[in-house]
Each structure stands twice: as structure tokens, then as C-alpha cells.
């Protein structure tokens, strides 16, 4: 269970999170939606400890994320960055197998490569990609390599920052299925950020709408169409008129 209680985070005068509260039960899939620049990526970075919050508390299974053994904490997580964040100095398979090669498991090169190729297959990439460098891949392929790296060590808690952005609809479907599969079969806890409403419906148990630094609306994905919340309605319809300003 991940819990955020009254979390505040500002960058200078830019007050991004303003008392955000959210609970993500174990083994469920939560999707965060919200306008561009509202702080969705910042939320994930705060939970995993890449950014320190100004006020408030974030706990994972009851223990504060800022105290305790960082290595043991991070070992439970996988995170897909919005920009992929692949290591451009190493080939794709080493990216995917990074944790397996250097982490506590320390697999042999051959074993790690095998796992990497298997994970690449799961995100719809062929084995010949394994020996290329990230710069040789298209944007969507890089995203999927990032996804393969995120799930390579079978983490319990997985953050996906826009996993289907830049993918064609078929590949997006593959990735949606994969995320769903990881949650249902392995029982992982997933938090996903996406702007793609069909993706929201495919992978979410719960949806949380971030607006003005707080969770404006949250509820089960079935209630999305009759949320009664003007922000959510505007988001689904994609209308320019509504509480979410078009110029931010």
C-alpha cells in the first residue's frame, strides 16, 4: 500500500503539489490523469525518493519512504521514465539487464542477456534489437526498451510514466495488456500516468485526477463516465472549455 498524506512540493514559486492525498492499495493498478504540467511525474519521483517533499508524508506499507534502507526500498521498485532515460553508452540488452548484472542477483552475462531478450519479446521487440544502441532506435522502440528494463527484475511496485505515448495503437494495446498482466498475474502494484483514455480504461482499477496540486477526483474506473466532476468530464471529452485552462 502506497499512501500520500497532504504532500506539498514546490520548485521556487511554482507550487506543484498542494496537499495531495492518495492511497494505492497493494496489487492494484492506479492511473493518474491530469493536464500537462500538473505534477504527475513529480508525484512518482517523490514516492520513489528522487525528489524530497516539502511537507507531508509518503509511506509504503506503513513505513516512511525517507527513512530506512534505501537499497532494500529501491529493490522493490521499477520505474519507467517519461523520456525513457536509457543509458546511451550501452547496448539495449545491457540496459534491460542492468539490475540483473549489477544488482544483488549478479547473473552471468549469458543468463542476463537471455532474460533481457525474453523481456524485450514481451514488449514486442525482436532479439536483433538487443545489440543495438538506444540512439539507433525509434522513439517508440526506446520507450519499450525502457519498459522492458522496468520489469526486468520483476519488481513488486511499478511506476509507468506515459508507457504508451509515441506508440502506434496496436503496440499501445500490447503494452496495456502487458501492464494488466503484470498486475493480475504477479500481483504487482502499478501506478501509471497516461493521457490516453483508452489506455486508462484498459489498465486502471482506480483512476485519480490531479488538478491544481490535489487529487480532484478519484474512483473506480467504471465510474469514470459518470464521475460528476467537471474536470474529469472535460478531460474525457477533450473540450477546450472547462475548469482546466487550455493555456498553462
Amino acid at each position: 500500500m502506497i499512501e500520500l498524506e497532504q504532500v506539498y512540493k514546490a520548485f521556487g514559486n511554482n507550487r506543484v503539489l498542494r496537499g495531495m492525498t492518495l492511497r494505492v492499495p497493494k496489487g492494484t493498478s492506479t492511473v493518474i490523469i491530469g493536464g500537462s504540467g500538473t505534477g504527475k511525474s513529480v508525484v512518482l519521483k517523490c514516492i520513489i525518493g528522487l525528489l524530497a517533499v516539502d511537507h507531508g508524508r509518503i509511506t509504503v506499507d506503513g513505513s516512511d519512504v525517507t527513512v530506512g534502507d534505501r537499497d532494500a526500498f529501491l529493490a522493490r521498485f521499477g520505474m519507467l521514465f517519461q523520456g525513457g532515460a536509457l543509458f546511451d553508452s550501452m547496448p539495449v540488452w545491457q540496459n534491460v539487464a542492468f539490475r540483473l548484472l549489477l544488482g544483488s542477483q549478479k547473473l552471468s552475462q549469458a543468463d542476463a542477456r537471455e532474460v533481457a531478450i525474453e523481456k524485450l519479446r514481451r514488449v514486442g521487440l525482436t532479439p536483433d534489437v538487443a545489440h543495438k544502441f538506444p540512439a539507433e532506435l525509434s522513439g517508440g522502440m526506446q520507450k519499450r526498451v525502457g519498459l522492458a528494463r522496468t520489469i526486468a527484475a520483476d519488481p513488486e511496485i511499478i511506476f509507468f510514466d506515459e508507457p504508451t505515448t509515441g506508440l502506434d495503437p496496436i503496440m499501445a494495446g500490447v503494452i496495456n495488456d502487458l501492464i494488466r498482466e503484470i498486475v493480475v498475474e504477479i500481483g504487482a502494484t502499478a501506478m501509471t500516468i497516461t493521457h490516453d483514455m483508452s489506455s486508462v480504461r484498459a489498465i486502471a482499477d482506480t483512476v485519480a485526477m490531479l488538478h491544481n496540486g490535489v487529487v480532484q477526483w478519484t474512483g473506480p474506473v467504471q465510474d469514470l463516465n459518470n464521475s460528476g466532476d467537471p474536470c474529469v468530464e472535460q478531460f474525457i471529452s477533450g473540450s477546450v472549455d472547462g475548469p482546466i485552462e487550455a493555456i498553462r
Binding site: 519521483k45 520513489i48 528522487l50 537499497d71 529501491l74 529493490a75 521498485f77 521499477g78 520505474m79 521514465f81 517519461q82 523520456g83 532515460a85 536509457l86 543509458f87 546511451d88 542492468f98 539490475r99 549489477l102 544488482g103 528494463r149
Partner: peptide, 13 residues
């Protein structure tokens, strides 16, 4: 700037 250092940290390195 491409978040590779952040990625390194999340991969326990």
C-alpha cells in the same frame, strides 16, 4: 538532463 542519473538511482545503483 535526460534523467539517466535518476534511472541509475531507481535501479539501485
Amino acid at each position: 538532463v535526460t534523467e539517466q542519473i535518476d534511472a541509475l538511482i531507481t535501479l539501485s545503483t
